[in-house]
Design a protein around this nucleic acid. Sequence first.
RNA 1: GGUCCGGUGGCAGAGUGGUGAUGCAGCGGACUGCAAAUCCGCGUAUGUGGGUUCGAUUCCCGCCCGGACCUCCA
Length: 443
Amino acid sequence: MRLHNFLTKRREVLAPIEPGHVRMYCCGPTVYDLAHIGNARPAVIYDVLSRVLRLMFPRVTYVRNVTDIDDKINNRAREAGVSIGDITERTLADYRADIAALGNLPPDVEPRATETIQPIIQIIERLIASGHAYAAEGHVLFAVPSFADYGKFSGRSPDELLAGARVDVAPYKRDAGDFVLWKPSTPDLPGWDSPWGRGRPGWHIECSAMSWRHLGENFDIHGGGTDLIFPHHENEIAQSMCAFPGSRFARMWVHNGMLVINGEKMSKSLGNFVTIRDVLAKVPAEAARLLLLKTHYRGLLDFNDAALAEARKELDRFYRALERTPPSGPGVVPDAVMEALCDDLNTPLVISVLHGLADAAMAGDATAAANMVAAGDLLGIIQADPATWFRGEGDAEIEAAIAARLAARKSRDFARSDAIRKELAERGILLEDGPGGTTWRRA
RNA sequence: GGUCCGGUGGCAGAGUGGUGAUGCAGCGGACUGCAAAUCCGCGUAUGUGGGUUCGAUUCCCGCCCGGACCUCCA
């Protein structure tokens, strides 16, 4: 498996630190609102990556965190007049349901920030003891100048950062670039006792603590969106490497590209915010999943209705091939598919191979059909029964109408047969006459 | 303003220093009562100007255009 490593800017072969055991950490959701379709992209990408890795290595530990302590959550709870626990529990349940609906398998570990407070405090204590952090007015801040390599990861110098900064610098910061590790909580907000008083963790320290707790000081892959490169990942690296001298933290950094809607960034002000639920209400989940995989993971992806419709048509083609030629049995993943996936997770290329297999299956090759299903399993698609894909649950009334139409056709009453077909078409039922009889599907 | 990424046919989207995948759409044909589906065939692309090279879409430089980040963000 070769992956583009943002740390080195090169495509590198994945060689697990612990032979045979790949350890991967991905930044997960902050649970304050329904997940949008942009949140779905990394979930799907890292799900596919974990599936491929599980096929190649004896053991894979995939950790995806949940940020359940955050100002956004607190604000949302206050606005809605409900407790913070209500918000996080409900949102997390919704997130899991939506992500599962998109065909993602659960990660091996899904740690929550609120369950990782002790490790967070331990790391902060280590940072203070080694002079990389300091307490001030109930806050604990990371001292950016204490880490010579700060900025190296994201490719920017601390001076540049200040030049472009548009925020006021809090008076208790020694350096404008210093960021919060711990901050005080008021009595009405969630808080934990700490050597610096009752408070809560900053956002960046959570990921350092959760990856440490579940994967150790060194692990193989760290994933997340490109928007997290700075400051989030830069800060994670600074915290972890300073807290654990000699460690290298994550060896490979994988970043997924952003997703836009009709060419525009999703934002509340533009009113183009699309949740996973919005999408699932319109099209089968698999169509959304295929669309997310049709573009290479590092590229910008335009998510729109036309693209969604096209993805659905492609799936129709795969399922049509399966309906025509049922798989001969359990298939094998073709070499071309593994090669494409191992080459920096080239899912668009895999999909083109899938189309080739569909052609063969369409022509009657049951082995190709089986292999197509096996390859589709790696992407998390083409696992449904074709009959279910096209028609959902059976419908006796539709079958009766089709029988009536067949009778009309037999007596060459084409006016009536066309009328029946038209009626069904208006209800979204499309008929297909073939040598083996008439089949139907929902539009 | 700074840093970085990208510009491939009508659209989406891979790959590659030596005749440019795949899908959608379009066109022609076969099949069909007519369709649909399927099959066969066709057309159209590497932003721009230089450089390196026997040869560049691919490597290097300038320009133009688009995007991301610099602030919470997948």
